[in-house]
């Protein structure tokens, strides 16, 4: 589903954020990406979401080299992606429901179907009672959950999340991670960047560790996960 082949990313005047990173994520696999701040987790996120291009190497999604994808093709590939941003990135003037409906509107789904699916996604993250609330009236944790609902509502092939539980309490974080694990069991490839090692241990999924832009470990999933 997703493959990094010797990927390096450097910025003009700013050193290398990634150095020859290679890994792959298969369909139905849940993978954690860990590392300290500045290790390169967010760069991986930006390369997959096509906000940036690799300086060397290839990032392949569904067999397509993202650096070579044309503008229209990139939009189509993004519709196969579910993105959870660290800073939520919700549209402030729209309700929680409208925010979650947005990917479905972009995909061209009819209004009734959109509403039904968005409502279900919000209920799944425990926000069934806050459908009409605007992001300003939601707590950071609730905003994070709206962001998660928006990412999963379209049932993407690949879900990538950048610190998705950063604003949530431990119990809710664990519930959200279990939701991701459940989505993976249903065939979705899930890649989660986090520095919360406690939750990584509890879920016991495959874990990649980055240090100074290098992939230093690829620990397989524990049998119990």
């Amino acid at each position: 589903m997703l493959r990094f082949e010797e990927v390096s990313k450097s910025y003009p005047g700013g050193g290398e954020a990634l150095r020859g990173v290679s890994f792959s994520v298969a369909e139905g696999e849940l993978v954690f990406l860990t590392g300290h701040s500045g290790a390169g987790k967010s760069t991986v996120f930006r390369l997959i979401s096509m906000q940036e291009r690799a300086t060397r190497g290839r990032v392949l999604f569904g067999g397509i080299d993202l650096a070579r994808a044309k503008r229209r093709e990139r939009a189509a590939l993004r519709r196969e992606l579910g993105l959870v941003f660290q800073d939520h990135r919700l549209l402030p003037e729209q309700s929680a429901l409208a925010n979650v409906e947005l990917p479905l509107l972009i995909a061209g789904l009819p209004a009734a179907e959109r509403r039904r699916r968005a409502r279900a996604a919000l209920e799944l993250v425990g926000l069934g009672e806050r459908l009409d609330a605007s992001p300003q009236r939601l707590s950071a944790g609730e905003q994070q959950r709206v962001g998660i609902a928006r990412a999963i509502v379209r049932a993407p092939s690949l879900l990538i999340a950048d610190e998705p539980t950063g604003n949530l309490d431990p119990q809710l974080s664990f519930e959200i991670m279990r939701l991701f694990a459940s989505l993976a069991r249903h065939g979705m490839a899930v890649l989660i960047a986090t520095h919360d090692l406690g939750i990584v241990e509890r879920i016991g999924a495959r874990t990649l560790t980055l240090e100074h832009g290098r992939l230093v470990s690829d620990r397989p999933a524990e049998a119990s996960s």
């Binding site: 229209r72 939009a75 993004r78 519709r79 993105l83 549209l91 990917p103 972009i106």
Partner: peptide, 16 residues
């Protein structure tokens, strides 16, 4: 600009 960026990341075409 921020809203446009989000919409594009969610897979919106230029037309949208």
């Amino acid at each position: 600009a921020e809203e446009i960026e989000v919409v594009r990341l969610l897979g919106a075409s230029d037309g949208f």
